[in-house]
C-alpha cells in the first residue's frame, strides 16, 4: 500500500469507514467482481487441458470441474479487487470497478471472494479429485497473496512471476480429467507463462502514465521504455518455440503445427516492430497487445480441434 501516496481517496482494504448506507450492490456488481473476461479465458484454457487429457471423463464431472475452476478464478478476481481497490481508483482502466465506485464495500468483496474460494476448492476436491482442488487452491493463493499483495506493488517482475497463476488452469483441467500431471500440461503451462509478459508489457507501454500514477512498478515505469521493448522481444522469442512445442513433441498434429508456426511468425514480427517503435508512437504496442490475445486463443482453439475435440466427443458419446 505504501507506493500509493496521492490521488487515492479510499477507505482502506477492510472498508473501515464507519457506518455505511445499506448496500445498493446488484448481482451485476458481484459478477463484475469476478472479472468475467479473465474468467472466460481461464475456463477456455482449462477446457483445453481437460479435453486433450487421455482417458474417460464423465461429462457431468467435466462440467463440474470447469464450474469450480470458473468460480475459483472469480474468487481470485474478487480478492484482487478487494486488495487493489485503492490503486484501481486512480487508474483510468479500473476506476469504474464496483469497489472504487463504492457500489460494493471492500469488506463485502473480501467476504465474497473468500466464500467463493472455499466453496470452489472444497467442491472440486469432493466431486472431482483433490489434486485438481489443490492446484486450484494454489492458484488462488498465488494470484492473491504472491501477485496481488506482494509482487504487484514491489517488483518490476510482478507479472512475470505472478503470471504463473494465470498459466495453471490447463494443468487443473488435465488433473481433473486424469488425477495426475505429465509433461504435456506443463508445456501448456509454459506457453501461457511466457505469453503473459509480452502481452501485459505491450499494454503497460501505452498505459505507463496510468501505472506510474497508481504507483505500480511495471517494467516500463521502473526500467524504462527501451528496456521493456527489448524484454518483450526476448520473451516473445522464448514463447514462439514453446508454442510450436506441442507439435514437435508429438502432442498435436500438422494443423496445430502450421497454425503455431504462422501465428508465432506474426508474434515475432510484431515484437520486432515494438522494438523499433519510438515513444510517443504506440501503434506497434497496441497491435502486439491485440494480436497476443488472438495468438493464445488460436493456439488453444486449434489444439482443442486438432487433438481434444475428437476425444471430447468420444467421451460425451460413451
Amino acid at each position: 500500500m505504501s507506493l500509493v501516496s496521492e490521488g487515492a481517496n479510499f477507505r482502506g482494504p477492510l472498508g473501515t469507514a464507519g457506518l455505511a448506507e445499506p448496500s445498493l450492490a446488484t448481482v451485476g456488481d458481484y459478477i463484475a467482481l469476478m472479472k468475467p473476461r479473465v474468467m472466460s479465458l481461464v475456463v477456455f484454457t482449462a477446457l483445453v487441458g481437460l479435453a486433450v487429457a487421455p482417458g474417460h471423463l464423465h461429462p457431468v464431472t467435466g462440467f463440474t470441474a470447469l464450474l469450480c475452476i470458473a468460480v475459483g478464478a472469480g474468487a481470485a478476481g474478487a480478492l484482487n479487487m478487494w486488495y487493489d481497490a485503492d490503486i484501481d481508483a486512480v487508474m483510468t482502466r479500473t476506476a469504474r470497478r464496483p469497489v472504487p465506485m463504492g457500489r460494493v464495500l471492500p469488506g463485502e468483496a473480501l467476504a465474497f471472494g473468500l466464500t467463493l474460494a472455499g466453496f470452489s476448492v472444497v467442491t472440486l476436491g469432493l466431486l472431482v479429485n483433490w489434486l485438481a482442488a489443490g492446484l486450484l487452491a494454489f492458484t488462488i493463493f498465488f494470484y492473491v497473496a504472491v501477485y496481488t499483495v506482494w509482487l504487484k506493488r514491489s517488483s518490476a517482475q510482478n507479472i512475470v512471476i505472478g503470471g504463473a497463476a494465470g498459466a495453471v488452469p490447463p494443468m487443473i483441467g488435465w488433473a481433473a480429467a486424469t488425477g495426475s500431471l505429465t509433461l504435456e500440461p506443463i508445456v501448456l503451462f509454459l506457453i501461457i507463462f511466457f505469453w503473459t509478459p509480452p502481452h501485459f508489457w505491450a499494454l503497460a507501454l501505452y498505459r505507463t502514465e496510468d501505472y506510474a500514477r497508481a504507483g505500480i512498478p511495471m517494467l516500463p515505469v521502473v526500467a524504462g521504455d527501451i528496456s521493456t521493448r527489448r524484454q518483450i522481444l526476448l520473451y516473445t522469442a522464448i514463447l514462439v518455440p514453446l508454442g510450436i512445442a506441442p507439435w514437435l513433441l508429438g502432442y498435436a498434429g500438422a494443423l496445430y503445427g502450421i497454425t503455431a508456426l504462422a501465428a508465432g511468425a506474426i508474434m515475432m514480427a510484431l515484437g520486432c516492430q515494438v522494438l523499433r517503435e519510438q515513444r510517443p508512437a504506440e501503434r506497434a504496442c497496441r497491435n502486439l497487445f491485440a494480436f497476443s490475445i488472438l495468438y493464445l486463443f488460436l493456439l488453444f482453439a486449434v489444439l482443442l480441434v486438432d487433438r481434444g475435440w475428437g476425444g471430447l466427443i468420444a467421451r460425451l458419446a460413451t
Partner: peptide, 17 residues
C-alpha cells in the same frame, strides 16, 4: 434502518442469486 425501494430491490436480487 429503513431501506429505500432501490435498496430493497438490490437486496431482493442478491437474495435470489
Amino acid at each position: 434502518i429503513v431501506l429505500t425501494e432501490a435498496q430493497k430491490r438490490a437486496r431482493r436480487s442478491r437474495s435470489i442469486a
